[in-house]
Design a binder for these strands. Structure first.
Length: 788
DNA sequence: CTACAACCAGTTTTT
DNA sequence: CTGGTTGTAG
């Protein structure tokens, strides 16, 4: 059984004659000794420990170029895996550059997931539960679909969705799949999760996916592993094909990926894993640092190459980062060094609150940009970045930069294909391509509104179950047998005929762009947004146009859908001059001359939740995150913290991060913030006196001072007590209001009380009368102060 | 069925 | 505060 066609084997892709010529390999020039060793140790297992900024990608791509040039493998025989599409693209480009654009394709250079899809499509029939099996045309569900499906299953089991949300179950199942635990081999204890229903729901979910001929992201890897385990012949084929394996960001692999790699590598053991244990920051999504720490045990005789010469940062930045990460236990150990000339110390500054922090950073950026800082010289905006721990920190900067007119761009956030309008449009396309895609049906049957609500959908679902039909066919039946009357019925008839027509066009190979446009127009979807008065409606229409435009690059809708589910990237910005704002996670792999690291406060960074849930493990991952942050900087890193920060609308006080204390003092310059700062809180004291003073403040004066205790107590009072009915401190009792008082409501703005009944007020707003609970309005003017 | 007031939870994020 | 979801009144 050879399902593998040879075209991708590289057989048809002749190696470049130029590359084959016995000319000394110019691409090896300029590599340092360690890089060269990493490139030239081609056979057997190799672990490349590559610190931040040590030329990891260069070594990796050069290694591939070398393999191909020496003729040890054809492009189709090299398996190179990355985590993100971005990394894969970057590698492809760089290999092409090294080899002078002559090597056509590296068909097996891609993400774990995209490579797994290619493998699974060829053996789909072998994935099943004994009764059902996948078909090669299976669809890939994203998180959204996954959750909606789980919600249905939870409802079917009559489980209280409030206490046991689908999101949580999705998280559990993801965790299991990350560890390659199928419903069949799930340990008892684990299956008892989710109020005892975990295992059962998981099994039901997997069955449901099979009937839908669908898989989720976690399945892509898990199915591959179980496929390899259950079918040695299949595994054999792939082992034979992939003569050399390379893995990027090995410290981020989870158990499933680890098993996947081991199975493929165990025959020839030509595996080269590249990673940095100090940059493992994805433990929360299943990454196992243990994989990289254990490499030498897993592959006895492995060569370990350390890339330690850093080409990115100043000695001060490296020293600060190294000093910090030294507090972590269980590292493989690396010492970054550089022969770059001395630069500036890492700067540290405390602020009164997050607004002051944002204000100060904004001013700094303007100063740098204008070149008003001799040591640095003019820095363009896209050479500067603000790296935050949590996305809610971004708001302060956005607000500030908006007011001072400083151009910025937020990296991350919802990606193009995750936006509502894109997902809706995609659902129309999906349904046209595969009429059995029930999830797509449910998504669009009443979008735009067709008067087909829950009840109508339930009726259709009932019919589908009764007759074993897809939802679309059941809908057709409902129309024919007139199960739904009135407007809804008429609209459903139209919807069914539209989708049927579209499907026929797809099948007969009609022009996919026309089909797409017709779908969106005739379904009324475009009109829905045209009639929408909300400010983001025009943007959504633009996105839809962009989506249709993106179709041009594909031959048909199927190809497009496949691409989007796995590969479609965020619509990253242009080359305009903007400061980047992003999370530390999003910053991994990037570098900027000037980096700001705000929000170094206990609770925020290190993040309280990470510590609560993962203990010391969590803390160490947070510390690695700090390490990643500092090492993004080429010339100047500035760390800051604020004594007070608005979180969920309330002010909260906090202490400077313990990471601040862990920075090696001799490489840090403590700045005094502008202005006068009153109060005796930790942050202010730290601001006044530098690291030593701040340390003392933290350890003695502040934690134990009555002022700090009082502040903590207040902060705790403000939080709702766990397990009891929340005490609503800021709910103003109705008796405190009098008819005629002016009040403010979050949504309706200011208004005047016209009537009072119990705790319910009748208020006249500009927009009209509203009846509102007293706790939802704030008193204006002379009313009593709200506590705190 | 829809609209809207009430309620509630709330890191990090790729595929 | 905010965004998403739920329950209820129209």
């Amino acid at each position: 059984m050879d399902l593998i066609d040879d075209s991708e084997n590289g057989a048809n892709v002749p190696l470049s004659r130029r590359a084959m010529a016995a000319r000394p390999s110019p691409y090896l020039d300029g590599l340092n000794a360690a890089q060269r060793a990493a490139v030239e140790t081609l056979e057997g297992p190799v672990l490349m420990l590559a610190g931040a900024g040590t030329g990891k990608t260069r070594a990796l791509t050069t290694r591939i170029a070398h393999l191909l040039t020496l003729g040890l493998a054809r492009p189709g025989q090299v398996l190179a895996v990355t985590f993100t599409n971005k990394a894969a693209r970057e590698m492809k480009n760089r290999i092409a550059r090294l080899l002078g654009e002559t090597v056509e394709g590296m068909p097996w250079l891609g993400t774990f997931h995209s490579i797994s899809v290619k493998i699974l499509r060829r053996h789909a029939e072998l994935i099943g539960n004994g009764q059902l099996h996948l078909k090669p045309s299976f669809t890939i569900l994203d998180t959204d679909d996954q959750i909606r499906l789980l919600k249905q299953l939870i409802q079917a089991e009559n489980i209280d969705e409030k206490r046991w949300p689908a999101r949580q179950l999705a998280h559990l199942i993801d965790g299991w799949k990350n560890r390659c635990l199928t419903p069949g081999n799930l340990p008892r204890g684990e299956g008892a999760a989710f109020d005892g229903h975990g295992g059962k729901l998981y099994a039901a979910y997997q069955d449901r996916l099979l009937t839908l001929n669908a898989v989720d992201f976690g399945d892509l890897l898990m199915h591959c592993v179980t496929l390899f385990q259950a079918h040695p012949d299949v595994l054999r084929q792939w082992q034979d094909r992939f003569r050399f394996i390379l893995v990027d960001e090995y410290q981020d692999t989870n158990v499933a990926q680890y098993m996947w790699l081991r199975l493929l590598a165990q025959a020839h053991r030509n595996i080269c894993c590249v990673g940095d244990d100090d940059q493992s920051i994805y433990g929360w999504r299943g990454a196992e640092v243990g994989n990289i720490l254990r490499f030498e045990k897993d592959f006895p005789g492995a060569q370990v190459v350390r890339l330690e010469q850093n080409y990115r940062s100043t000695p001060e930045i490296l020293a600060a980062a190294s000093g910090l990460i030294a507090s972590n236990q269980g590292r493989l150990g690396k010492t970054l060094w550089t022969d770059a000339p001395a630069g500036e110390k890492v700067r540290l500054i405390g602020h009164w609150d997050s607004e002051a922090e944002a204000r100060w950073i904004g001013e700094e950026i303007e100063t740098f940009q204008g070149g008003h800082r001799a040591a640095i010289g003019p820095v363009s905006l896209n050479e500067m970045a603000i790296l935050v721990r949590a996305s809610h920190q971004m708001r302060a900067f956005e607000d500030r930069f908006m007011t001072i007119g400083l151009p910025y761009r937020v990296i991350g956030g919802p990606r193009f294909y995750e936006r509502q309008e894109i997902r809706d449009a995609m659902a129309y396309f999906r349904l046209a391509v595969s009429p059995e895609d029930d999830l797509a049906f449910e998504r669009v049957v009443n979008t735009p509104k067709r008067g087909l609500g829950d009840k109508a959908v339930k009726t259709i679902q009932g019919l589908a179950r009764e007759h074993g039909l897809t939802l679309l066919d059941a809908a057709r039946l409902a129309v024919e047998e007139k199960h739904l009357g009135g407007k809804g019925g008429a609209n459903l008839r139209e919807f069914v005929s539209l989708m049927t027509g579209a499907h026929l066009s797809v099948q007969s190979g009609g022009d996919h762009i026309q089909i797409a446009e017709r779908l969106l127009d005739e379904s009324g979807y475009t009109a829905m947004w045209q009639n929408d008065k909300s400010p983001d409606a025009p943007g959504r229409l633009d996105n839809l146009k962009e989506l249709v435009k993106a179709l041009e690059e594909f031959e048909n809708l199927q190809g497009f859908l496949e691409h989007v589910s796995l590969v479609m990237d965020r619509d990253d910005g242009e080359n305009t001059e903007e400061v980047s704002i992003m999370t530390l996670h999003a910053a991994k792999g990037l570098e900027f001359p000037v980096v700001f690291l705000p929000g170094w406060e206990e609770g925020l960074f290190p993040n309280q939740r990470a510590m609560d849930e993962q203990g010391n493990k969590g803390l160490e991952e947070e510390r690695r995150l700090a390490y990643v942050g500092i090492t993004r900087a080429e010339r100047l890193a500035t760390i800051s913290f604020a004594g007070n920060r608005r979180l969920y609308g309330q002010w909260q006080s906090s202490m400077p991060s313990r990471f601040v204390d862990e920075l090696p003092e001799e490489h840090v310059e403590v700045l005094t913030p502008p202005g006068l700062y009153g109060g005796g809180y930790g942050a202010a004291m730290a601001m006044a006196g530098g690291v030593q003073m701040q340390e003392r403040a933290a350890k003695a004066d502040v934690y134990n001072s009555p002022g700090w205790r009082r502040m903590q107590a207040r902060a705790n009072e403000r939080k709702a007590p766990v397990g009891r009915t929340p005490v609503t401190i800021d709910a103003a009792p109705a008796t405190r209001f009098t008819v005629g008082d002016r009040v403010r409501h979050a949504k309706f703005g200011e208004g005047q009380i016209m009537g009072i009944a119990e705790d319910t007020l009748t208020v006249q707003f500009d927009t009209g009368f509203k009846t509102i609970k007293a706790s939802y309005v704030q008193p204006l003017d002379g009313a009593d102060d709200v506590p705190f």
